[in-house]
Design a protein around this nucleic acid. Structure first.
Lengths: 342, 342
DNA sequence: CGACGTTACGAAAACGGTTTCGTGTTAATA
DNA sequence: TATTAACACGAAACCGTTTTCGTAACGTCG
């Protein structure tokens, strides 16, 4: 087992000082041609690589960014993560991921663990519990320490920081308008029970679209489902009565499950009833029928978030404190598939 | 912006030495009651938290583990990751994730980035390219430096290290046997084109099951598909001719797409043809019909891998070099759903 | 009263780098 | 020949901890 070699070893071996070795390896002008070649050859031979930790301690920069998400087994967050990782890696940064599991406490603990020097900045989406409690002190502490923070998707305006979001309201509005313009009038909304910013905004957009077209909002058509809802919640009766002819769902799982129930009731999709979901994941692409859905372009969001964060991290060092926070809105795309095909 | 406070600040403020502060915060016997209380109160007041980087440098342990996976937008890897993150977090470790994107070069670069002090050990699944090239020098270098390594799912026996795998051969064999015992005789195998260990083993299991039951293997029933295959590859004719009455697929995407094509050809599932896939993801659960599939229990694999790694990391410090490598085989479960229901 | 043991603390080294500032030697210049 | 500049390198501080070792002050005991 050959342990890693350090500057000290090289220095001792070549009978020069540590500083000389350090400078030689950086090709400093200060060092003679001879010495540089000698040192570099030796370093190459023994495969010397500087110790990241030591460099971090000296520079007070880790080249790590912390990502905290509520859930990782979730298509949207995964694609965002891919975007982050891609951009960060290209810039020489590593990504430390923590999962808050929708829990406030875990979110706080994870932030604290990372905030003590492990990372240069945070990218995160708030947990459901954090949004419910409306307690953002952990975010505030971090930003007050001067650690850059970028929030995406599940954001709050209580904290001054960069944000990357989609226009959930507009996306839901556009989707609803599309249904209306396709001749649908009794449009239901299947949304989440737990309080999430995004769900609320999507509901707003839904309402807005109906109002714009002069269709009264019928509250009984708005279903709030627990995340892992039981089939009974969507009673077959609901479908059988033909209470509605279109459904907007705030995620693709709700949509696919609802489609199945409708089919089991003998309804034809899209002839009798059409569906639109959110998140362009595997389910949307491979369900039968394929699902029309609002693509959130998670990867793009991730790249944007990583770029904003890294820009801020790196400017910290040359710039004056030109603190200004930006919000980037990534445009959504309505991907039309069989579930709304006319 | 209040910067983080250090031992030095506390020492200066309280007019004691840095060592005294350090010891007082650790409740050392060496320090008087008075001084300890004074220091601890001050630390609490200013919310002192030791700097992780400095501690890492001193201890030569980072409490970070590196995870390298070929892809993150992939249900199986994501669940494994969740298992890793869960266990690691519970043990006070953070997880740095790198995505190799199935590329050998990225895998090497990522390993090198992390191996220079950033992490205490690796958990990884090999990229497709690495498996094809059969080049494992980057793994060897890392293990020779004494950095613990745990391989999962996509492993190699060329490197001496811990492994967490499923018994792909047995799982495929069992699934195939189940199809046979359900009365199926003309069983096709849809597998990947690119060379992957796991695919090869699954194919083995498939062949073995047929042989065991005295059914000749018909090579024309084994289809090797590119990962993002075009519909044409699975020509409708293939299904229409009723060349086969069951299909074993090495992943759930293949299975779901094949089911759709079969349905389009007017075949009834499972009456005319049944399907079994691998990976119990969203698709299997929500497809129509729901898909019988081999659950790999990724989360369990992740936890097992993390446990093995952390055990090794922590024993490094007390134990003698009792190097012994273990392979944990996580049992799979065949989850029977509509696609094989009789 | 001298030897010794506690107690309570500080100095300093160490982890592995980077960087500033000196300085001895040589060579060029006045 | 004395002055100075350039060159090539080393000493040391520093980043924030931990930890070993030394020691001043005090009390106890024979």
């Amino acid at each position: 087992m050959k342990r890693k070699i350090t500057l000290k070893h090289i220095a001792r071996e070549l009978d020069v000082s540590i500083s000389t070795v350090s400078k030689a390896l950086k090709n400093s002008e200060e060092i003679s041609r001879d010495t540089k070649e000698k040192v570099q050859a030796f370093a190459r031979l023994y495969n010397y690589k500087p110790n990241n930790i030591a460099i971090s301690l000296k520079n007070k920069r880790t080249k790590n960014i912390g990502v905290i998400v509520p859930d990782i087994v979730h298509h949207f967050f995964t694609t965002v993560f891919r975007g982050i990782e891609k951009y960060a890696n290209a810039k020489g940064y590593n990504v430390i991921v923590c999962v808050s599991d929708e829990s406030f406490d875990k979110e706080v603990i994870n932030m604290e663990m990372l905030a003590n020097g492990s990372i240069d900045g945070f990218i995160m989406a708030l947990s459901a519990e954090t949004q419910r409690k409306n307690d953002f002190n952990h975010l505030r502490e971090v930003t007050e320490q001067g650690i850059p923070l970028v929030l995406f998707d599940r954001v709050t305006d209580e904290i001054r920081c960069d944000q990357v979001i989609i226009d959930d309201r507009a996306a839901a509005r556009d989707a609803t308008l599309r249904l209306i313009d396709n001749g649908r009038r009794r449009i239901a909304l299947f949304t989440t029970e737990t309080y999430l910013n995004v769900s609320a905004k999507r509901e707003d957009g839904y309402r807005q679209a109906l109002e714009e077209r002069g269709i009264p909002v019928r509250e009984e058509l708005i279903l709030r489902l627990p995340y892992q809802y039981e089939e009974e919640n969507l009673s077959g009766v609901f479908f059988r009565d033909q209470e509605f002819d279109a459904v907007l769902c705030v995620n693709e799982i709700f949509a696919v499950r609802a489609m199945r129930l409708a089919q089991q009731q003998g309804l034809r999709i899209p002839e009798d009833i059409s569906f639109i979901g959110f998140t362009d994941g595997l389910l949307s692409r491979y369900s039968a029928p394929t699902l029309t859905t609002v693509a959130q372009h998670g990867e793009q969001m991730g790249e944007a978030a990583a770029k904003m964060l890294i820009d801020k991290v790196e400017q910290e060092y040359d710039e004056t404190d030109a603190r200004s926070y930006r919000t980037r809105v990534i445009p959504t795309t309505l991907i039309e598939r069989e579930s709304t095909a006319l």
